[in-house]
Structures are given as structure tokens and as C-alpha cells.
Design a protein around this nucleic acid. Structure first.
Ligand SMILES: Nc1nc2c(ncn2[C@H]2C[C@H](O)[C@@H](COP(=O)(O)OP(=O)(O)OP(=O)(O)O)O2)c(=O)[nH]1
Ligand SMILES: [Mg+2]
Ligand SMILES: [Mg+2]
Ligand SMILES: [Zn+2]
Length: 582
DNA sequence: GCCGTTTTCGGCCCGACTGTTTTCAGTCG
């Protein structure tokens, strides 16, 4: 069983926390940055470590010799010596304890030393028995806050789906916009960057009366508990999610929007670029501090260069504006500096959808209804790809080879009457051995074959998917990992290897736009494009209303640096037909 | 521990809020 990047990253996050508890400087940050990059790496890092050694691992940004050798150590032995030592010195359930709001590594360290607190249960007992307030530096408020927050920490803390968080963001923006003191209000954070999952809803307001805005915010009918409420910043929890608010003066809105949109890594990189230029960037603006004695003297020291708009901020750093979807600290600042930012794909550029279901399998509508809805959306073509029979098809919904041939004639008949082009396709299952659930003789008659995994979604899927991508009849590898957000992580894939094979075989790799999937995700798309792969954005709609998933797919493509020409479904019908025929 | 179109050593983003403290540490964004 391979070690997932997530598991590997968690080791370094824990080591970071243990070191921070011991007042070690800088290393915790170094380990966390490395952990973040390992987590996002488009190949399995443990496999890389075993097969190619430390040099290959050191290619990961922020991973140097020391961390690379620890990666190899973990991949080979399942343990990291230094981590084991630190755990012995501080034998606590670090992840659980720090999941309590307001409890960080230092608190964990001190409560272990003073009260032998190792687990959430220990923490609860200590708080209930009023032991925590006896520790110096802690008081009754800290103790009761901890007690209040323990129950929440015990619940699973899933991130919200983008599609669930978006309406919450719209609701709070709507509410705040009606507040008199609010001049402008925008969603920021991961929601503005279209991350597939959202930790909290970040909202930015421009106002000259911050207190009034914070008051309105905590009075919001959806507000459950107020986590904190200061003069220009507040956080609350609704039933579903945490909502953060930041309020700034209208003249500072751009700098604040830049700050609050993030990502954190992007902000740090941007601010470092500022330092190189004797500038300071914060959420209030860009400041020239070359003539300033003490740049740390306050938030607005130096000569203000700008900050009314986001473009001001980037401009002051000699950069073109960077679209929010790119702001993940994955090379976008270097690309911007070199004027090599991609010309990102847009919703308008999409001309069709190549992965759709009807009531011939598990869809809710007829072929005609799906085609009509696509026509009304202004599409130039669709491809109907009902499930073929096979593993993972619940209740035997899939079509047999005979049924597929029957449906093919039906699709041709509908196509003859339709205003748009109707391609005949199928969604075939990719078995664990890479074989498809439909006979080659049937596949060859169809215009477009989507091959995708539906069962046995554990472990490494690279060989399996490459086998499918190289099948002569296959045109698209659909939802490649098979992940379901918050449910299952799906197959582990060496994305560059899959993309390379797909590019050579003339097979497209899908971004499945269903917001429960978003598969491939942004950084995988970026890796795939680097190998020259063609991407297709499909909704996998099982009814006309699901065509609206498209926007999640398009923004995921943008997160993967995709330009229109990279995306098959922006191509005109004739070019798509040529791609499918080839 | 990591990193480098001024560096292979000397820096490492910057600020708000809370609770505890009598001036700041910890946590979080
Ligand atoms: N400069 C700087 N900005 C930060 C830092 N932490 C957070 N931010 C900014 C960038 C983030 O996108 C923004 C909102 O913070 P969040 O913790 O909500 O992160 P974000 O929304 O990106 O992800 P999330 O889905 O909420 O986990 O605040 C930091 O340490 N330094
Ligand atoms: Mg957020
Ligand atoms: Mg936030
Ligand atoms: Zn499907």
C-alpha cells in the first residue's frame, strides 16, 4: 500500500508543531512549507523517494536535503527518527489538541508540562476541574474558551464544497451590502480563488464606519456563535461554516482585497518581492520605505504608492494583475514578472460538453431533452455518454453492448433533427487491469469514448489509467482519480506520466466539473498541461440543470493555468470531430 | 530548514484580536 502525499505531509506538520512547542525558530515554518508542497505534488512522493531517492524528492519546492532524506526514511521504514524522538519528549495527540480553536503548539507544550495533558479528554478534564487557570499565563477566560471549543473540535471538521460555500458567500455579501455603512463588499479567500473546498467564507467590506459593519455582521440572522469581534475584523460561525469579515477604508480596498484573497503563500512571495524593492506591502497599501527610519513603526509608514485597487498593488511591484485562480504560490509571480501569465480560458469560450447522461442509463432526462437544453445554452455540440454496464454501476444501470448499438441509431436520429451536433458516445468503466467494460467492436462505432474508473478506487491508478488512455478507441479519460470530495480520495496518480501517455495517444484528460468531484483538480491540470496534454471540461450532467456545473470546471481549468486552446470543449465542432476521429 | 538575476550566509510577511499581562505572547488571518 502506497503512502499518500497527505499522510507524508502530516508527519512534517506534526514535526513542525512539536518543534514550535519547544520554541525552535524558523524550522517549523520550513517544515510546514515543505508539507504543503508535498501535499500538492502531482506525483506520489513516497514512491518517488523509494524509486529515485533523495535527489528526485529535492526537486519539490522548499524540500532540501534534510527533509528529502526524512521522506526517504518514512517511505522505507514508516517512521522518521527525529519525529519519534520529539514525540517521546512531548507525547501528545498534537493534531487533536491543536484542532481546538485558540490552542496552538505552545499551549499544548505548556499544558503537557504543567498538567500532563495528552489528549482531548485530558484537556476537557483539566478545564472542568479548573486546573488550567492555575497554570501561569492562563486564566479563567482561556479555560472556559477551551471548554466551549472542545465539543466543536471533536466533530469532524470537513471543509465545505465550493458549491455549498458559494451561496453562503452570496448571502452574507447580500446582507452586508444592504447595511448603510457598507460602501463595497466582496467575497475573498479561497472562495474567490475557486478552491474545490473552502475552509471558511472570507468577506471584505469597504466602509468609513467599521464598528457599524462589525455590529451588523454579528447581528446577521445566520450568525450562531461570535468567535471574535474587533474594530475592523470579526469571525462568526453559522450552522454550516465559519465566516470571516475584514473592514477597511474605501481607499484601501484594493490592497485589502489582495491580502484577503491570498493565498497565504502568494502573499508571502509578493511581500518578499516588495522587500527586495525597498517597499512594504500590507492590507493597507504599498509603501515606499526607502526613506523610512523604522519601517515597523506602524501599518502606514513610508510613502504610500497605492492600494485603492488590486492592480495598484501588482503594478507597484512591476507585475501585471494576476487572476485570483492563479494565486497559489505555484510560480505565478515569476510568470507574471516575465510577462508569461497564461491567457486563461473563460466560460464564454466553451462550445460544448462531451460527457453527459440520459435516462438510457442513470440520467433523469431523455436524449432530446439534454440536446435541447444544450441548444438553448448556445452550445455547438454535445456528446451523449451513458454508462456501459460494469463494476461500480449500482443496480445494473449500464447499457449492454447490444443496447449501446440500439442507442447509437437513436442518437443518429436525434442528431439529424437537432440544431447542434450530437456525438454518439459511451462512458466505459476502466477495470483494475485497465480493461474497458465495452467490446472493442462497439467502441469503434462510436464517435467518442469516455473511459473512467468507478470501482476499486484505492491505491495507485497510474498504470490502469495509462492503459485506458492508450486504448485506440478511447478519446477521454474521465474523472481520472474517481475522488468524491470529503468522501474518498480516489486513485493515486502520477499525473505527468498519465498526461504524457494521453498526449502521445491523442486522448484528452477530463476536468469533471461536478462540484463533488472537480477531478482533475487545478495543480494536476497544470502538471498535465506541462506534458502537452489536451484537457476537456465536462459536466457529467445527469440532467439539464447540471449543465450549470460548467463554471466550476472552467475555474478549475483556470486554476490549472489552462488557455482556451488547451481545452477541447472550446474547439469548434470540426476540430473536435477531427480530434475524436484521430 | 531552505534559499539565492545584488547573497552559499543571513535572513525568513505582516498585522488583528484576545487574554494575560504591566508590556506581550500566542494564535490566527
Ligand atoms: N500575508 C498573510 N496573509 C494571510 C495569512 N494567512 C491568511 N492570509 C490571507 C490570505 C488568505 O487567503 C486569506 C484568508 O485566510 P484563510 O485562512 O481563510 O485562507 P483561505 O481562504 O485562503 O483558505 P481556506 O479555504 O479558508 O482554508 O487571508 C498570513 O499568514 N499572511
Ligand atoms: Mg478562507
Ligand atoms: Mg478566513
Ligand atoms: Zn459520467
Amino acid at each position: 500500500m502506497t503512502i499518500r502525499n497527505e499522510e507524508l505531509a502530516a508527519q512534517f506538520d506534526e514535526l513542525a508543531d512539536l518543534l514550535e512547542a519547544q520554541d525552535v525558530e524558523y524550522k517549523p515554518i520550513a517544515y510546514r512549507r515543505a508539507a504543503d508542497n508535498i501535499r500538492e505534488y502531482p506525483e506520489n512522493v513516497a514512491t518517488l523517494a523509494t524509486q529515485e531517492g533523495t535527489n528526485a524528492v529535492e526537486r519539490i519546492d522548499r524540500v532540501g536535503k534534510a527533509i528529502a532524506s526524512k521522506v526517504v526514511e518514512y517511505a522505507e521504514t514508516g517512521e522518521i527518527d527525529e519525529l519519534a524522538e520529539k514525540r517521546a519528549e512531548l507525547p501528545v495527540d498534537m493534531a487533536a489538541l491543536t484542532s481546538v480553536e485558540g490552542v496552538g503548539p505552545k499551549t499544548v507544550g505548556r499544558l503537557y508540562e504543567a498538567l500532563d495533558v495528552r489528549t482531548l479528554d485530558d484537556l476537557e478534564t483539566a478545564a472542568k476541574n479548573e486546573k488550567i487557570q492555575t497554570v501561569s499565563g492562563f486564566g479563567p477566560k482561556t479555560e472556559s474558551n477551551i471548554l466551549d471549543n472542545i465539543d466543536f473540535a471533536r466533530q469532524s471538521q470537513d471543509r465545505q464544497l465550493l458549491s455549498d460555500a458559494a451561496p453562503i458567500g452570496a448571502a452574507i455579501v447580500d446582507y452586508l451590502t444592504q447595511t448603510v455603512a457598507v460602501q463595497r463588499c466582496e467575497v475573498a479567500g479561497s472562495l474567490r480563488r475557486w478552491r474545490p473546498t473552502i475552509g471558511d467564507v472570507d468577506t471584505l467590506v469597504a466602509s468609513t464606519d467599521p464598528q457599524a459593519v462589525v455590529d451588523a455582521f454579528t447581528d446577521w440572522p445566520d450568525t450562531g456563535r461570535v468567535i471574535e469581534a474587533g474594530t475592523g475584523k470579526a469571525s462568526v460561525r453559522t450552522n454550516d461554516v465559519r465566516v470571516d469579515l475584514r473592514v477597511v477604508d474605501p481607499s484601501e480596498f484594493g490592497a485589502a482585497l489582495q491580502y484577503f484573497t491570498g493565498s497565504k503563500d502568494h502573499n508571502v512571495e509578493l511581500r518578499n518581492r516588495a522587500i527586495e524593492r525597498d517597499l512594504k506591502v500590507n492590507e493597507y497599501g504599498v509603501f515606499d520605505i526607502s526613506e523610512t527610519d523604522d519601517p515597523d513603526a506602524g501599518q502606514r509608514v513610508g510613502d504610500r504608492i497605492g492600494g485603492a485597487t488590486e492592480t495598484d498593488v501588482y503594478d507597484a511591484l512591476d507585475l501585471p494583475p494576476i487572476p485570483p485562480e492563479l494565486r497559489e504560490g505555484r510560480g505565478e509571480i515569476d510568470a507574471a514578472a516575465a510577462n508569461e501569465l497564461p491567457d486563461l480560458v473563460t466560460l464564454d469560450a466553451i462550445r460544448g460538453d462531451l460527457h453527459l447522461h440520459t435516462d438510457w442509463s442513470d440520467g433523469r432526462n431523455s436524449i432530446e431533452e439534454m440536446v435541447e437544453a444544450a441548444t438553448n445554452r448556445g452550445y455547438e455540440y454535445v456528446c451523449i455518454t451513458d454508462h456501459a454496464k460494469g463494476p461500480g454501476m449500482v443496480g445494473g444501470v449500464g447499457l449492454t453492448d447490444d443496447q449501446l448499438e440500439t442507442q447509437l441509431s437513436e442518437l443518429r436520429a436525434v442528431g439529424d433533427d437537432a440544431e447542434i451536433d450530437v456525438f454518439a458516445g459511451v462512458e466505459a468503466n476502466i477495470g483494475p487491469d485497465g480493461r474497458l467494460s465495452v467490446a472493442d467492436a462497439v467502441l469503434e462505432q462510436l464517435d467518442c469514448v469516455v473511459a473512467s474508473p468507478h470501482a476499486a478506487l484505492d491505491g495507485d491508478g497510474t498504470d490502469r489509467l495509462i492503459a485506458a488512455a492508450e486504448h485506440p478507441a478511447v478519446d477521454i479519460v474521465g474523472h481520472p482519480t474517481g475522488r468524491q470530495l470529503n468522501q474518498r480520495s480516489g486513485l493515486d496518480i502520477d499525473v505527468p506520466a498519465l498526461a504524457d501517455a494521453a498526449a502521445k495517444a491523442g486522448t484528452a484528460v477530463e476536468i469533471n466539473a461536478n462540484p463533488r468531484r472537480l477531478d482533475l483538480h487545478g495543480s494536476a491540470v497544470q502538471a498535465a498541461l506541462e506534458q502537452g496534454a489536451t484537457i476537456t471540461i465536462d459536466t457529467d450532467a445527469h440532467g439539464p440543470e447540471s449543465y450549470d456545473y460548467l463554471r466550476y470546471g472552467v475555474h478549475t481549468a483556470r486554476r490549472g493555468w489552462a488557455e482556451p486552446s488547451d481545452v477541447l470543449t472550446t474547439w469548434p465542432t470540426a476540430d473536435v470531430r477531427a480530434f475524436l476521429d484521430a
